[in-house]
Amino acid sequence: MESADLIRSARFREEREADWRRLEALVQEAEARGVTGLSFMQARDLSSLYRQATTSLAIAREISLDKALLAYLEALTARAYLSVYAPQERLGGVFAKFLTKGAPQAMRRSWAFIVLGFLCLGLGALSGYLLYFDDPDWYHVFLPDSLSAGRGPGSTTEYLRRVIYDDDPSAQGRGAFATFLLSHYTRIAIFVFGLGVFLCVPAIALIFYNGLMFGAFVALHVNRGLGWDIAGWLSIHGVTELSAICIACGAGLQLGFAVLFPGQRTRAQSLRVAGRDATKLALVAALMLVAAALLEGFGRQLVQDLNTRLWIGWGVGALWLAWFCLAGRRRR
């Protein structure tokens, strides 16, 4: 058919169709290789063709009744919009920025929640400790057998000491137990973070319960006169690991507070704002858990001396604290 015979909207389409096709191809390329992978000419064309397409869409909505054309233009502009205005973020420097600025600043901003997390764990530990001295049977209530690995009020002092100062690092099951503990604590960290949003209650309950386990476990050893030894055994990784859990709990509590007390914002807005710092806290916790796993995997078996264990454990803890307090401060 001659183009003069066409109805107006068909002519409109014929004149612009080549540009739309071109935009379609450019969008596909931008999605496959990223906007940064486009050449200068292509990037320039992408944005100008996108603007033309939005104009075409606005006109087509007014003048055309061709359903196929309208659907195509709606989809094309939406797709092009995504690659023009919401391209993939550049990842370079994300880690460095997070380590030097984002994480420590977020930690300082939410110090109150983190203190709250430590308080929950500390109170739980205190209760567990006192309850054990009240009646050692509490130990079985708090610690499931899979976690205690045969250590309980019934085991001999000699056995407990042997576990702490492990003579044979390659002992069967020891490695599996350590990895199990690691994934146990990682899971707890993720859960206290994720559960915080449910009005804080499950996160507090979970971390308090972990405090109870911890307290009872320590009390068992103190009761047998192994107090310093277990302190060393736990310190080398526990300082890092338990802090990580408390920080994750702090992040969860922050989300729960955002739901409970949104202030002038809607709950969704307040969650979104709280989510920024909470995510950074969760990532810090994850980082610390990895570090704890390394300390536990190597440090605990290689370092058998009590004092060195204490030094390493609390020294690493002090390093974390220094990072949180000192890094990312603006220069005056």
Binding site: A10, E17, A68, L69, A78
Partner: peptide, 13 residues
Amino acid sequence: HLPQPVLLQDVSN
């Protein structure tokens, strides 16, 4: 839903 642009032929021609 990721929009899928598919241009069908114009029925008028």
